[in-house]
Amino acid sequence: MTPPVSFRNVSYRVGGKDILRDFSLDVAAGETIVLLGRSGSGKTTALKMVNALLRPSAGEVMVDGRPTTSWDPIRLRRRIGYVIQEAGLFPHVTVEGNVGLVPRLEGTPAAAIRTRVHALLDQVGLPPAQFAARYPRELSGGQRQRVGVARALAADPPLLLFDEPFGALDPVTRVELQRQFLELRRRLGKTAIFVTHDVREALLVATRIALLHEGRLAVLAAPADFLRARGEEARAFLACLDPQAAPP
């Protein structure tokens, strides 16, 4: 079976700087692969290649067996959900309009969009009667992020990309949203690529963790194996789990 996403020897250079170097990775259907790494390690860059916001300088990213460069970018993006930090919601559009955006672009009839949006808002824990007509500025950070997740799911895309979606939230809200993420994954079984710099979050949501270090793939392991990983960068991340064990 062709993997839904496959990075093949991908490099990305900008201004003489290698941001991603010879990065290869196959994402299996239904899994949540976490790209873990320090800030600046190239996670966002790798993610943005999947929905063709960036083009590789060398190598290729295959989506459903076709290089992203040969996809019509609009078609490609409409079948990939994308959730970013602070959600990137349209401030001039209601929650309902934000969530229904992609189905509307796809020409789905208004009544069907409405039904879909209300079902999704229920799924992410925002009762539509209370939230559908609100504007993003009338929501808390956690609520905005829930709307962002609902928006990414609206057109039922087979693939989801998350770029530090919960990074700006308070710890309690973050844990709530992580739980909800797991719950949605169990229910929907979609393929997801999830970027984070938080090793706890990685261990919690990943089926496999890909650790990036200065643009290279340093470790690729299931969470249980990642805990025993030996490389220096992996150890640096694992040290965050247990502050007492960290070197002085």
Binding site: N51, L53, P73, I74, R75, L76, R77, R78, I80, Y82, I84, Q85, E86, A87, G88, L89, F90, P91, H92, L101, V102, L105, R151
Partner: peptide
């Protein structure tokens, strides 16, 4: 216009025209 808003519009699969008329000009 907030770059995050613009980027998410593009990532949702908006065309250049949709980005202009539905996001940039209203904002």
């Amino acid at each position: 216009v907030d770059p995050a808003v613009r980027e998410s519009a593009v990532a949702m699969g908006m065309t250049g025209r949709q980005l202009l008329f539905e996001v940039e000009l209203p904002l």
